[in-house]
Simulated assay, not measured.
Amino acid sequence: MYIEDLLAEFNNGLIAGLSREEAAEKYPYQPHLALHESVYEQESQLQFRYRAEHVLSKILSENKEGTIVVITHGGMIYQLYRAFLGLPINTEVFVSTGDTGIHEWVIADGKKIIRASNKTDHLTNKNL
């Protein structure tokens, strides 16, 4: 097992640990930030995507063969999908992931394949 700090969720800065109500009151949502801009000591969307690109590259380069299991947060999974598929940072493509959702990706013969996305059978099937 290897712990990779780069797989952390989006760094929401001063909002961390606050209830949604308290966060909204103290730190109002800023809807029109450029990709490189951030507020409230958060990382920017560009920094978050770069971190996902960086960690995906690191994982793939250090593990040429075999199975890799990555356990991380929903926001990071979303960014890893974008990086894996080569989508632009400002794409209108969204990927859903539920709590403990399982996503299976394969790279075979230079092709990227998504075999499963957001599987949650393990939450309801007692026989697994």
Rank of each mutant, 00 (worst) to 15 (best):
A108Y: 14
Y50C: 01
E104H: 13
D99C: 08
E41Q: 15
R115K: 13
T97H: 12
L87Q: 04
T91C: 06
R20K: 13
L80I: 10
G86Y: 09
G86E: 08
A83T: 10
N90P: 04
D109W: 06
K119E: 10
W105G: 02
K119Q: 11
Y2R: 08
R82S: 13
L35G: 06
L46P: 00
S19R: 10
E62W: 01
P31Y: 13
Y27E: 08
D109H: 14
G74Y: 03
S38Y: 14
F48A: 02
Y50K: 03
K111G: 01
V70Q: 04
K111W: 03
G17C: 07
V70C: 06
W105I: 05
A16M: 09
S44N: 05
Y81R: 03
R20L: 13
E22C: 08
Y27P: 09
E41G: 00
N90W: 11
E41A: 13
N125V: 11
Y40V: 02
G74A: 14
F84H: 04
H36P: 03
P31M: 12
E43Y: 05
V106E: 15
Q47G: 02
W105T: 03
Y40A: 06
Y29K: 08
I107A: 08
I68M: 00
F10N: 04
G13K: 02
V55I: 15
Y81E: 02
G74V: 07
L80A: 09
S96R: 12
G13D: 03
Y81S: 01
T91S: 15
G75C: 08
N11Y: 07
D121K: 11
T100A: 15
Q79A: 15
A8T: 00
E4P: 02
L56A: 04
N127Q: 09
L87Y: 09
F48D: 01
P31R: 05
F94T: 13
V70G: 02
L33P: 05
H73I: 02
H32M: 05
S96A: 15
T72I: 06
G74M: 06
A116D: 07
Y27R: 02
T72D: 05
K119S: 14
R82M: 13
Y40S: 05
L56R: 06
A23K: 04
E25G: 01
E9Q: 01
V39C: 11
N118I: 09
E22H: 13
Q79H: 14
E92A: 12
P31E: 12
G86F: 09
K126H: 05
F48Q: 01
